[in-house]
Every structure is written in structure tokens, then in C-alpha cells.
Design a protein around this nucleic acid. Structure first.
Lengths: 221, 221
DNA sequence: GCCAGTCTGGCAGCAAGCTGCCAGGAGCTC
DNA sequence: GAGCTCCTGGCAGCTTGCTGCCAGACTGGC
């Protein structure tokens, strides 16, 4: 393998210096997987992608951002994501943590970020076609099972809420309302009220649809 | 980056020669993502893993195989998977194609397979920690959303069946049985019969549960 | 205290879903 | 054609789910 196909840099400055042009060179595809929005914060890279966005007609250049749910933790982050989205990027949320950030450009270049260290984050840049293709297919696999930002937010219900989880669990276990209500120690009326609320939150017209949504979002987890 | 951290080989013989010892060296983790069972067919590698399995106490060494649904196409493949599973490996099925095969050993070594060529398949082997960690986290993400072999087979229904898809779609769209039956041009009785059959196939007691299963399995796709 | 707001559970009635039964019809073999 | 199987759809009766309405209970503020 030719040595120049893989190299590492340490710190954002060095990354910008040695790989900044790669961001500019994006032509058809810009895939980004990250835990949150902090990693790719180098202004230069952002600017490069922004320029690219401006220049391109969006039909053939749509960045795709794949994030874990923690990226939605604060309002600022959400606002930024909506902005990104409004500019034509696709944003999806994966259930998994994605601790190591990844960027794929035009199925040609891959940039992987390592852990933060005192001397700066280390990045590995590669153009090895096998490595890029392999990671590309993994990215696609996660992308396919991730849910769209809008869908995610629309049903980003308080599922931390223990009550709702109980209802979901009861529904998912296939009990009748009567047994479920008894098991949860509430009246039939209240149980059904809860179910109706849950269905409203999931924007579902039927229980089947509610189950479907819940399953798609992986809610019982 | 030190050059020896990444190298490529062409053909199974060369892979075995230069990386065979890595298979033997697996101590705690052996992750494998593949489209089907044909790729990692080199007897030497298989034997190495088998040896490893025999030697280890299974509590701290469980290979994890992640496959796409096409791996279940024929009976022979299914039988093999059951065998693998009975020996302690975990097998999961991902909805995505996974065209490029990946092996991760002890979070230390990664082997990616490229496309088949006339002179043999090309493999890239790397021990770069950043690359390995990055791919490892992507693998984990897919693994988390993939379904267990048993679960998959239990409900590996003929969803290729256009009829069933229609029913699912109708249910998923939140129509009442009456509208759905009208839309599908069947009687209410028949529609409900179909729904009941579907529920039986999904092993569901309630429509919610059926929806949940369907959602988990990504059936509307 | 009194008032407002929120949550609960019973009741009642309707809508939706489920299923056993049976009558037809299509396609098949003999 | 007779006999058979498989599928369909109507009917009927039952269960389950859904929801509006109202009464009671609790909380917090004034």
C-alpha cells in the first residue's frame, strides 16, 4: 500500500493544513457521523462545506449528517441542526452512541477522529479505496436504520418518563387493557387515557400505527 | 503513521500467509460483518477461529457475526448459521446489504475485504487504533439495531408477499378496517382475516404488538 | 376557609375489532 | 358431472377499544 494513502495528524490546525483542501473538494457526497456537534468545529472546515453548499445546486450535493441523540441535548444544538437542515442537508439520528467521528467525502476520502488528547485530537485521513468503501457501507447501514431528525423530534417524547415506558411495555406485551390496567394498578379509564395520550404523542391513528412508530424508534429499549 | 500499521494483500493465500496469525491471536472479541457466508471461506481462517473457540471458555470469547438477510437465502447457509450459533457465537441479521466485509479482532486489528477481482480479492489489514476504533463503533451501532438470528427467523415471514405488504401498509397508514378493506378491494371479513393471519405470523396478541414487531423488523421497508 | 387547576375513576354509549359458522364460487382430479 | 379443496364474503354475536361527561380527590395559592 502506498504510504500516502493513509496519514495521521494531530490537532485541528494540522488537520486543516493537510486536509482542508479535501473538504473543499467535495463534489457529490459528504457524509458525517458524529456523537454531537462539537467535534467538527474547526471554522475552516465548516466554511469549506458551506462554500460548497452555496456553489452547488443542491440536487447533486446533499451533505448527510448522522448523529446520536445526545446531539439534541441543548436548544442551541437543535437550532443549529434545523439550520443545517434548512440549507439542504439531511440529518438523521441514530440510537447508538457513535463515539468516534467519521467523515466520508465523495466515497474517496475518509477522515476518522480519535480521542481527545492533551496535545489535541488525532485524526486519520485515508484515501484507500477498500477502507473508504468498507466504512461507507457501514455508514449506509446505520443511516438506513436511523430516523430522520424531524421524525425523531416529532416523537422525541419524554420516554425517560417511567410512566410512559410502563404503558409501552404493557401494550407491547400484548395484554388486554383490562389486565394491563390491573397490572399497573390504575383504572381501565386511566389506562386508556394514557394510551390515548401516547398515541397522540406518536401521532398515530390506530394502535397498530402506534406500535409501528414505537418499533421504528426502538422505544422499548 | 508507521507504514506497517496498514497493508494490503491480494488473494486468500496471501491473506492467510500474512494475517493468518491474527485470527489465531483473537483473545476477547471477534466481530465479523458480511453480506453472506461466502467471503470468509478460507479454511485456514475458519479453523483458526474454531480452534480459538475450542480453547477458550466461552464466557469471555464470543464471536459476533453480523449478516445481511441474503445470508439466509439457502438452507445450507441457515444450517451453518445454526451450527455457528450452537457453538456460542452470536449471530444477528441487519437489514442493510453490507457489501464490504469486515473483521475486527480484539479491537486491535481490522481486516476489510474489497471487491473480487480476476487476481483474487484484495484485503486491507490495519492495526491503526483510530481506524479500528472508528470502525468498531460503527459496527457496534449496526449491531445494536440488528435483530437476533432467532428472532429474525421466527418472523422471517413471506413479506416478499405483495398481499401481506399491502395489509401492512394499510395498517400502518392508520386507516380503519373498513376503509382499508375498501381500498384493497376486499370485504371487511377478508381483510380482518388477513390481519389475523399477519398477527399470527408475527406472533402478536394485539395490533399494537404486531405493529411493534413490524416496526422492529423494519417491515414497511 | 375558598377557588382554581390537575388528576383520577366510574358510567354509558358508540365504534372498532375479532371469530365461528355457513353458503357460494373457482379450480382441481378422477 | 361428482367430489374435493381452497378461498371468499356475509351474518351474527361477542369482546375490546375509545371517549365525553361528571363527580370526587388532591394540591397550591390567596
Amino acid at each position: 500500500m502506498r504510504n500516502e494513502e493513509v496519514f495521521s495528524v494531530r490537532g485541528d490546525a494540522e488537520l486543516t493544513a493537510r486536509a482542508g483542501h479535501l473538504f473543499e473538494s467535495a463534489r457529490t457526497e459528504f457524509l458525517c457521523a458524529a456523537r454531537d456537534l462539537k467535534t467538527w468545529s474547526q471554522p475552516e472546515a465548516r466554511a469549506a462545506v458551506r462554500n460548497r453548499m452555496r456553489a452547488a445546486d443542491h440536487a447533486d450535493f446533499t451533505p448527510q449528517k448522522l448523529l446520536s441523540p445526545v446531539a439534541l441535548a441543548d436548544e442551541e444544538a437543535r437550532a443549529h441542526l434545523w439550520l443545517v437542515r434548512s440549507k439542504g442537508a439531511l440529518v438523521r439520528i441514530s440510537r447508538s452512541p457513535l463515539p468516534y467521528e467519521t467523515i466520508l467525502i465523495d466515497r474517496r476520502v475518509m477522515i476518522l477522529a480519535g480521542q481527545e488528547t492533551p496535545t489535541g485530537r488525532e485524526y486519520t485521513v485515508t484515501t484507500s479505496q477498500i477502507l473508504v468503501d468498507g466504512v461507507h457501507s457501514l455508514f449506509r447501514a446505520i443511516w438506513d436504520t436511523a430516523v430522520d431528525l424531524e421524525t425523531y423530534l416529532r416523537s422525541d417524547v419524554p420516554h425517560l418518563d417511567a410512566d410512559v415506558r410502563m404503558i409501552l411495555k404493557a401494550l407491547g406485551s400484548g395484554l388486554t387493557d383490562e389486565s394491563a390496567a390491573r397490572r399497573l394498578g390504575v383504572s381501565l379509564r386511566t389506562y386508556r387515557r394514557r394510551v390515548a395520550e401516547l398515541m397522540a404523542e406518536l401521532d398515530a391513528d390506530s394502535r397498530f400505527q402506534a406500535g409501528l412508530r414505537a418499533g421504528e424508534l426502538g422505544l422499548p429499549h
